[in-house]
Design a protein around this nucleic acid. Sequence first.
DNA 1: CGCATTTGACCAGCGC
DNA 2: GCGCTGGTCAAATGCG
Length: 363
Amino acid sequence: MAEEELHQVPPPLESVVWGSSGDLLGAADDGPRRRRESMVNKLISTVYSGPTISDIESALSLSFTGGGADQLADDDASMDNYTSASAGGVSTSPAVVLSPELNSSKVLMSKMENKYTLKMKTCGNGGLAEDGYKWRKYGQKSIKNSPNPRSYYRCTNPRCNAKKQVERATDEADTLLVTYEGLHLHYTYSHFLLQHHHQQSPPAPAAGGGSTTTSSKKPKLQPPRDGPAPAPPPPPPIIDHDDDDAPAGDLDLQSSFLLHGGGSSWQHAAAASPRRDDGRMLGVFPQQEAEGYYGCGFVDRQHNSNNNGGLLEDVVPLLVRRPCNSSSSTTTPTSSSSSSPPPPPALSTTSPYIDMAILPNIF
DNA sequence: CGCATTTGACCAGCGC
DNA sequence: GCGCTGGTCAAATGCG
């Protein structure tokens, strides 16, 4: 069953990161490369225990009844690690991330369209969820038979038709039902990159990158903007690939990096560098730029021939990040995460968080 | 002042 | 056709 697979150890890197794409590793046969792959695989295995791209792909491609979801919930230990952020995609902290562990979340295909629901536990932050994208709330509606209103969000990227609905579960106060719909036609930005950046270039107070989770009075987008975010590097030359005006940039250092399942190509960092809504690029971390940080670009976004139809792109960001509490105590049995103070930003090298975006650097 | 959120109004789909 | 419900719009409001 799918739920079983979700508990399996991640497969080789290819299947995890590049999925069917294989653009980058397709012809990898030489020893050194294999060693690197092995290393990366090990790394991933260490930090990632959730489902794989393949799992998701299969789950999304097959007629999904969601029947196994309940079983997934059994694995509640990890469920606790499922954090989220603000319903509005208010990324308040890199430490507050969506758990990659779908084994702790429920993937419910409401339709076999670009629509799916994730059931996730909140983890502090006032029960807000963050998935690596920046969302703008455009509506809220009280739903029949539900005491909790449903919030409607739209990706801030004007060229992106991704939407999501966030609703608090009726039975579980600390559980959010997030329904994603549509495609993200751009990149998110990895908070891991931020971490990486911090590791490379020290100081960066723990609060960096809005990591202070602070919950301001109310969810606010673009945390970095008002937070003591690390001074952004000087604007790099704009390399507009025209297919990724990632508002993700708005997530600044917190969004996660998108993974493309197939038909995509890896492009240089600039392609995935954060930008503002207006398409202006926020900048690429010098480190990544220097080392050649690869982003995955759409070849033809208009036709969006990607079989994934964006689903994976939506899901994957959740997969490549670790739960907020997982750094030290991987699984705290059902401790009300929502009541516990948000964990400090994981910026150390021991950070359990990992973003695939950084992996290409290793190669 | 710009931007994000709020919230009531409006619209569309569906069932009866 | 009508009413209910969910989803979206857009003006008002609030915040930094």
